[in-house]
Design a protein around this nucleic acid. Sequence first.
DNA 1: CATGAATGAGGTTTCATTCAT
DNA 2: GATGAATGAAACCTCATTCAT
Lengths: 200, 200, 200, 200
Amino acid sequence: MTPRIDPEERREEILDAVLRCFARTGYNGTSMDDVVEESGLSKGTLYWHFKNKRELFMAAFDRVMNQMVEPFMQMFEADVPVVERLRLFEQSSKILVSAEQELSTMPLNFLLEIWQDEEFSQHYLDVLGEFANSTREMIREGIENGELREVDVDGVTWGIMALYDGIFLYHLTGFPMKSANVFEVMTNVLIEGLVRRDDK
Amino acid sequence: MTPRIDPEERREEILDAVLRCFARTGYNGTSMDDVVEESGLSKGTLYWHFKNKRELFMAAFDRVMNQMVEPFMQMFEADVPVVERLRLFEQSSKILVSAEQELSTMPLNFLLEIWQDEEFSQHYLDVLGEFANSTREMIREGIENGELREVDVDGVTWGIMALYDGIFLYHLTGFPMKSANVFEVMTNVLIEGLVRRDDK
Amino acid sequence: MTPRIDPEERREEILDAVLRCFARTGYNGTSMDDVVEESGLSKGTLYWHFKNKRELFMAAFDRVMNQMVEPFMQMFEADVPVVERLRLFEQSSKILVSAEQELSTMPLNFLLEIWQDEEFSQHYLDVLGEFANSTREMIREGIENGELREVDVDGVTWGIMALYDGIFLYHLTGFPMKSANVFEVMTNVLIEGLVRRDDK
Amino acid sequence: MTPRIDPEERREEILDAVLRCFARTGYNGTSMDDVVEESGLSKGTLYWHFKNKRELFMAAFDRVMNQMVEPFMQMFEADVPVVERLRLFEQSSKILVSAEQELSTMPLNFLLEIWQDEEFSQHYLDVLGEFANSTREMIREGIENGELREVDVDGVTWGIMALYDGIFLYHLTGFPMKSANVFEVMTNVLIEGLVRRDDK
DNA sequence: CATGAATGAGGTTTCATTCAT
DNA sequence: GATGAATGAAACCTCATTCAT
């Protein structure tokens, strides 16, 4: 038998294996047997720690999502002008792109493979919704203190998120582009397109 | 049994059914039996007209993709200033969003469900690559004739595409936003962020 | 491939195999793989003809049940005094006992293995209910024409059925008794216990 | 963790849980995990007290069987005419029917769920065999002292048992009949069918 | 005595694909 | 061209049993 270890540790061990599998072949492309092989554990053990395949992958998703969202969340609380905070988006995004494959590949891949799954979809919306709230607040603040033009707050909020997620998606798809560069250039365009211009 | 009809017509009939299935349940969620039921044809017939499931869905994808890309392609050739052409992006995008569900749901959904499929992935890259070329040319033209700032052409090119695809993705995901509004606002931000400012 | 045969014939072929398996090891003791082996067909074929294991066994049950109930049903319509008809129970029962193993083993075995299955249970109740109706009618007729004592019709009806099913059950359980003899003796006791006695 | 308690007490505790599980879902429908949950004990504890699932359920069966057989056994020893003793069958049977669900559901259900189990089958036969012996003795006595007709002793013995078990089975199956009434009526029919009539 | 994580064989079901008719 | 029965590998999941702690 495998030597007994802390259940929580075992869970993490399993999630590690899941992430590796998923990065390689995605949700539908990964069988529980694949996870068995990758983890070196038995099928029964997987099902002892997780109810079923979906729960397993949702747990993996959560872990990655939290890791990825964190730098952005910190950014929202930086005590600098809104424009500077926007510029931090660039850095946070670059982190994602440079992060280890298995981490970065997960989230969108995940989102889209489970496209049809109602419950999962809702869960994802919740996470992103929170993110949207923070962004919205930041934009509003920027407008109020005169840093930004008087744009439609909600439109810009979702637009910014879509922009960065879009670039990230393209990155993951393997398009022949320099991802870090695209993040940089577009962050600049975004800021230029949002700042208030006194001369007008 | 079934009266013989023109093979080309039969193919279209099948693709129609495939698209309906796909819009409902995606690639992995659609079995060949589902297509059989939806089309009212037999399994053998499907396999007579298409080599296998992948070919079948790739054909369906191509048909939709062409339909969706067309308005954008026309836009590239409009005989108006670059800035105006950029503004046309907004309109073309809105068409997508308002199009019939089954058409609009396809492409990203598709792309991501077959994520792992080497051959398909390449195919998709080719289509998008062509699109990128047109965009790149347009940006270059804008810079050369002084309409736009001197930005990194390649970065902006992929950035623009990522932005619109990103919004489209969010739209499909069902985020609680006014998609048409987001397209409009972000097109504006994009242009404001790209145009040359004489006063500088 | 197996040469193509009539679907109806194939269904019967499968049911034959199922009955053989079931007679040997019961419902829970029979795996679909067992049926595969016994039938010489593939698993896919089983599932092509029957939705799932339960449907498969329910179909098998129906076939046997009909075969077994038939002689009794004919008996109900015999144009002889009620007492004579009751005596025919004995003969019909003996047929069951002497019938080929696979036929006779089925029904109770069936009933009891699927004990918990709501839908199946109802189905069985329906079949037996019909049987009860015929019995009840017969008893009533016997009382009215003075052949039988004035007993509680419903109680006797279910009692008779329980008696014969009970003996049949004991037979199947393999108790060390001469089943045919028990049927004979008890039929006699039953009739003696039911007939009207003028001298009273 | 759990305070040590008397092993015998612990066994009873487990059997109680088993019986509750069994009454709900039967042998095959009850997993050891179900028993774990129902008992509030651990898997290891169950296996410490019982060799395996079969032993566990056999022990539960024995306990119930003894409880159920007891009133009948007492009846055999009643110091009254055989006909009166037969009439006591009715009362004993009614007890079964009115007993708590979990107790009454067991025996036949049990018998038939483990139908295929050689060892268990034998065990059951032994218990019933003993019962048969007592019945046989009673019938023989009745014939000898002139209370009963000269019937085939063995046939009647098994017939009586089959009758009561049959009614009990029907009761458990949930047939739409008044069980107590059926017991009453059939006991009467049985006695009427067995008693010697001087007028002959 | 007690625990509960670990095991892995075996269960049911799905589904892309083939091919005799 | 068209049909649909047949195939069988592979998917997800269950569960009786073991054993280190």
